[in-house]
Write a protein that binds this DNA or RNA. Structure first.
Lengths: 248, 248
DNA sequence: CGGCTATTTGACGAATCTCAAAGGGAGTGG
DNA sequence: CCACTCCCTTTGAGATTCGTCAAATAGCCG
């Protein structure tokens, strides 16, 4: 649990003071290990269900009637997980550990307290929520407007761009611990079709190579071209952010 | 601009004090009228671009290379518009007035100030952002997993459920000021296919009737069944929210 | 009344799904 | 250490939905 990594989503947006770092670290509960396949809410408290993901991957899926589902977000280390359900009576997402994971519970009371004691961190959390919206907007765009090849390319580029800042890439090699079944659930396709298109990207377009769950993004520019989606750049230290709170 | 409507997204989550209402009203600039088809950022300031929509519909679209685009959100009166772009260097969405609209600019400085002076409103804005995430998650799910008939049904139910609390429904009649071209852009389909499926919903399933841009949702239960998506219910006055700030 | 845009319909083609089955890898238990 | 089993991956063939191209009709605005 590298603390530098633990707040990476916030430090990517602004420099944090030591006081702020401490406040964030005190907000999360003790780390808990969960095995692959577990449902986070089953094991860590049904109720409000806000989590911090230290290690591993977590899938967030929306359920439809008739045993159908769509994975709407892949959570990586450093993410706050479960926030979308906060304003609702019933959880809106099924949270599944895709690997063995380490998570902490965040009590909503502590979250409320953070908005009072550290308005600047509150504003940063608000901005992270906007980032998440944009991720979903981009995903909706690829699923709505691109064919399977484009969606797959956009997915690989996106995951690479998220793994990179938290030190989980090895050059252009990334490890994606998803089965093709799970991948199809992310991209709104069938496993069979995922398989065919993966082969095309590898053998026809020659932009990737893969061995098991390791993907080598050979031609990143080619992938971005297939994906059609622009790269998003954050703006750090926005001028209008509240000043850092002075602890009494 | 009925102030009760102007803060409806927040009052739907918690009771607001008079002080809080005032703070919100002071945050928004003077109302401006824009004609249908206008780009909000062209006319109201390129830079940070946060808006409050008093009247009319605004589409938020993500652009892809090659003149393709996907509408990711339809904004209705009472919505804050443009927030997803806040943390980014360049705006991520194209904001287009679908009808004649009345909008106000919100200066980011005022937003930052709100987090300091009214932590409770800051937390509520955070929750509204989570609601928006869920809307996108649901949209992604329908586009990824439902056929055109299901997507259209889910869309009509969703719009009805949003128009209803702001008093823009007439029984089960709703007015949707979108051309079929624009509708196809929302649902990730082609205008031609939208047209055929609309006819099916009307003449085969008999769950809707329509005349121009007015839709009569004859069989709401039938529509919800076709849509496969559960109805989401907000939880009001969450216990962990910060207390109301006392103004000096 | 005319010009423009939106809607509607038809025919055809392409992308993706469904159903089915064979081949691999990894973990498990003997 | 081996064999078994289970799941995942891969491949094939046919069905279906949806897209593309094209053109006719209808409605709105000046």
């Amino acid at each position: 649990m590298n603390p530098a990594k633990a707040v990476s989503r916030l430090t990517a947006l602004a420099e944090l003071s030591g006081t702020e770092m401490t406040a964030l670290e005190q907000m999360v509960g003790p780390p808990v290990e969960l095995a692959r396949g577990r449902n986070l809410r089953d094991d860590l408290g049904q109720e409000p269900g806000l989590f911090f993901l230290h290690r591993g991957w977590v899938a967030s899926a929306v359920m439809l009637a008739g045993n159908r589902q769509q994975t709407v977000k892949l959570h990586l280390p450093g993410d706050m997980v479960g926030a979308p359900s906060l304003p609702f009576r019933a959880p809106v997402e099924l949270l599944t550990a895709l690997t063995s994971v380490t998570v902490s519970l965040i009590s909503p009371a502590q979250l409320g307290d953070l908005f009072v004691r550290h308005p600047r961190l509150g504003a940063l959390l608000y901005l992270v929520a906007q980032e998440e919206r944009v991720t979903l907007m981009d995903r909706l765009t690829t699923v709505g407007r691109l064919d399977a090849r484009g969606r797959l390319a956009a997915f690989l580029v996106h995951i690479h761009d998220r793994l990179s800042p938290i030190g989980l890439t090895d050059g252009n090699m990334i490890e994606v611990p998803l089965t093709q079944q799970q991948l199809s659930d992310v991209l709104g396709l069938t496993p069979v079709h995922i398989n065919r298109v993966l082969r095309d990207l590898e053998e026809v377009d020659c932009v990737i190579a893969r061995r098991r769950h390791t993907f080598h993004l050979i031609d990143m520019d080619g992938l971005r071209e297939i994906a059609l989606l622009p790269q998003r750049t954050l703006r750090r230290n926005l001028a209008w952010l509240p000043p850092q709170a002075v602890e009494p």
